[in-house]
Nucleic acid binder design. Sequence first.
DNA 1: GCTGCATCAGTAATCGTTTTCAACAATATA
DNA 2: TATATTGTTGAAAACGATTACTGATGCAGC
Lengths: 346, 346
Amino acid sequence: MATMLEVAKRAHVSIATVSRVLNGQTNVAPEMAARVTEAVRALAYEPNLIAQNLRRNESRTLVILTPNITNPYYANIISGIAQGAQENGYSSFLFNTEGKRALEEQILERLKKHQADGAIMLAAELGADWIYDYAKEYPVVQCSEFDPRFSIPHVCVDNEQATKDVMAYLLSLGHTRIGTISIENRFHSTAARLHAYKTSLVQAGIPVEEDYIRYATQGYTFKMGLKSARSLLAQEKRPTALFCVSDMLALGAIAGAKEMGFRVPNDVTVIGFDDVEYTTMFHPYVTTVVQPCYQIGHTAVELVCGLIQRQQVPQEVILPHNLVIRESSAPFDGYLANFASHVTGC
Amino acid sequence: MATMLEVAKRAHVSIATVSRVLNGQTNVAPEMAARVTEAVRALAYEPNLIAQNLRRNESRTLVILTPNITNPYYANIISGIAQGAQENGYSSFLFNTEGKRALEEQILERLKKHQADGAIMLAAELGADWIYDYAKEYPVVQCSEFDPRFSIPHVCVDNEQATKDVMAYLLSLGHTRIGTISIENRFHSTAARLHAYKTSLVQAGIPVEEDYIRYATQGYTFKMGLKSARSLLAQEKRPTALFCVSDMLALGAIAGAKEMGFRVPNDVTVIGFDDVEYTTMFHPYVTTVVQPCYQIGHTAVELVCGLIQRQQVPQEVILPHNLVIRESSAPFDGYLANFASHVTGC
DNA sequence: GCTGCATCAGTAATCGTTTTCAACAATATA
DNA sequence: TATATTGTTGAAAACGATTACTGATGCAGC
């Protein structure tokens, strides 16, 4: 690959002039500029970005840390990030960390090593104090998850309010035996949703029953939803509505309910969270909370670009959520609910 | 961030010595080496990789082009790549191209610009001649898909043979009315599978019926499988077995068959391809061709590393596939098949 | 004609490494 | 004692760009 020097020689100018032409500076005689562009074309010159980055002391690169790229929830966030990065003249590099700290640190080390100008972290856990060590010194932004103890800029929805909306909706449908499928992890969203679930009940004068709460032990998976629903719905005074903290859990819960002979939504209402594509793949389509994923990603890029340019950026950006009502939710039907718990097949 | 010069000053040595220590060279006096390591530690020195790369004229970086990171089929390939890259001291950068040529070219341009040492392309289409322009000059390897007209090194399974295995299995089960859900795209695998489907029939003395072939028009999706199955099974002389070129299509086909009142596998046998996680999520678990995805990814890295080091590498690596028989396939039952086509509900 | 001021092009320093080469000291050999 | 050999070390030249600075040229104003 040709270098700037070769271009300069061919155009009979100095490399400084070549550089000026390439960077669109005005103080170059048109005739010279023409010679340079011609030489660039003839030699198919492409600037060596490594050299450019060294000199400019920037990499124009963002690293994106995702626990699991296969998760469709992240897919839209990522495409928002990719688009935003491009608009701001950055490349975004995607890493699949599987939530492993060692890997995550390895990637953030790139900030130190000048391989990246900023980082966007999806799904950082509560108590991951070490992240703050990087965020203090380098541009780091968090998406969806964050730890309120640290002032790392982040973009998310109001999980507490979203859950309250779900609960208000369920209560308005007449449900009083409302269960939840939560999850065993250290995400802020999980804690916020569980907290709002409980306070909503209390505020409605309904006691919180631990029997109505299950925790997925192995991630937001279909199987976990299935298993949790089986156990929740096997109780004599089974819940008539299930709030699941993710759509995959909801899908599993619906399958579990069906398997036990319950109809969804007639016998059991199931509500999800996130609005991934699968919610409208199988009937009943899932009633769920939609998060503006693309926007979340896009906004995160804007924050991190702000940080890179040492501008003042908001510590927290909360984007609007939306409860979309589809086929998996229906008003409480006392008659059915009392009998359905004894049914075992159709 | 401290530079080498600062480390050198603090250790009272030259930067050459610092470099030697950092690169583990032996001809350094232990006492000096100790001073250097101490200074490195004290200043929390991290080498500037940009400078390093410039000097070494390499980036130790691989770019991975994926059409769709959400597709679980790619997930395992990607993790094989990530692992292989790490083992070889490379970073792998993942890009979601959505099959857009402009984006793909933009990413391959990084090879020219010294931003990446090699590229691994997943799912390149037939007739994408322009790729060859890059592959001629830079290390490029293809995974799963490739164009036999060009000699770009690639890793894949033998799609032709795998399909023949499926067909032999179906024929051995007694099926003679075998349909296929293929797809409208320009992948070599698609052509190979369709070709093998047809030749297997012909070799068995069964004429190829266009009525038994459907083409998914909008990708390997559940909905496409559903739609194709509906149309295939609505025929009076409906096929009793369906070979689908992807698991998602098979899942959709199973749903479609069920919806029409057919039992899978009793009334209709459905076979998929790839063996993604979803095949064992819902019953019946899908009989499918498993591809050694992780291995494919891993091998692709080895090839590309070979190319980078200007070694001779094989033009084609074919990895073994495996037909795994699960719950969605069963022997042909003449009695059921003749009546089931008139059934509309259970 | 001389000064002052643009305008434009080139020289050289710079970014932070690696690596060649020469210098030097210490040791072995004759 | 003189020389060859070996082992360490540092000075300086790369890598390929950007950019501050310098210098040359041309033109206007006096």
